[in-house]
Amino acid sequence: MKEVKIKIKNLSLYFNYIQALNDVSIDIYSKKVTAVIGPSGCGKTSFLRSINRMNELISGFRYTGEIKIDGINIYDREIDVVNLRKLVGMVFQKSNLFPKSIWDNLIFAPKLHGVKEDNKLKDIIEETCRKAAIWDEIKDRLNENALNLSAGQQQRLCIARALTVKPDILLMDEPASALDPTSTAKIEELIYELKKNYSIILVTHNMQQAARISDYTAFFYLGHLIEYEKTTKMFTNPTNQQTEDYITGRFG
């Protein structure tokens, strides 16, 4: 069943005098993987970052339109951004672990949100690391520096860390672009598993990746949402000529 998780209406984003997104309306479905594709500078990342209000960290940011998660406008004044980001986790292109132990990395967010007891923390960590399919690799190395892990493991640890505060939504910005094919495959399997419990939005330059793991695909070009379709439809018979040109590599 399709249930709308994020409802975005007429969203336009501006950074000073540059308009990054132009009147985008889109429904993101619950417990599905939505891939966002498009050439560099098309507004994919700005779009993603507007869903957990990270664009506000950039000076000169303005927006019009609205974003509702479960019917609640996230740009409402009463919304606590820390709680919003608890609900909407994010994973970046390069893993951004703290130069601390694996344990410290993982307990950082739950502690911030008030979990104090070691037992509880351990349970949370084991549960999330199992979900992120990395528990077996790190369970005996929790006190080691997180940066000693391989790049693929670091990235999966970042995903585990994002899950420790029990988000509903995961935003992923090119989570596998810096990884080798094996680690990429692991991340893709993981995303496929995670969608049972989370709504995932995945920005990717890799169209094949979008095809392989997403349920829906949104194609952005020059700040416009050109086409938004089921992935199967998008990659077998896209409606828009620009989409066809982009996914077949005939662009520009």
């Binding site: 094949q208 199967t232 990659f235 077998t236």
Partner: peptide, 9 residues
């Protein structure tokens, strides 16, 4: 088959 070709290369 069409889906497998298009989505999984």
């Amino acid at each position: 088959c069409q889906k497998l070709f298009a989505l999984n290369q």
